[in-house]
């Protein structure tokens, strides 16, 4: 992740790198929230977004297929294939349905950490 972090984040240890399929996603439980985490092996990048698809409120983004459109990494919801940017979560489909929240991701020593804005517990780094 190359995003410059100006806000303060709490880094939450989600899983180990090998838990996430190559070029695919998993769902991470954070307190009562669900976060979709993607291992974009082809690009050597990691991304995280909210797991809920804003189109029909389905907990499904982590099961979506990732790819790119004109160089921008994106994910398609498995239900109705709405596309979202992995970089900023914006809906890329013609008939927009709302955007995804995104989270920064760091990989350290084989562990994957997700940055939760402003959270206080479970602090790392």
């Amino acid at each position: 992740m190359s995003a410059t972090l100006t806000e303060s984040y709490t880094w939450f240890a989600a899983c180990s790198t090998t838990d996430v399929p190559e070029n695919g996603g998993v769902c991470v439980k954070y307190k009562n929230d669900q976060i979709a985490l993607f291992n974009f092996t082809r690009r050597g990048e990691w991304y995280a977004t909210q797991n809920m698809c804003p189109h029909r409120m389905q907990m499904a983004i982590s099961r979506g297929m990732i790819g790119s459109i004109e160089g921008e990494p994106k994910v398609a919801c498995p239900f109705h294939k709405k596309n979202f940017s992995l970089v900023d979560g914006r809906c890329l489909s013609d008939d927009s349905c709302g955007d995804l929240k995104t989270y920064p991701v760091k990989v350290e020593g084989g562990r994957v950490f997700i940055g939760i804005p402003g959270a206080e517990e479970d602090t790392w780094a």
Binding site: F40, R42, M65, G67, S68, A76, K81, N83
Partner: peptide
């Protein structure tokens, strides 16, 4: 899939070409 994309395509694929 990766071999096919590396050899014959470009970019990172999408929900149309992958399946």
């Amino acid at each position: 899939y990766n071999e096919v994309l590396d050899t014959l395509g470009k970019g990172d694929g999408c929900e149309i070409c992958k399946p």
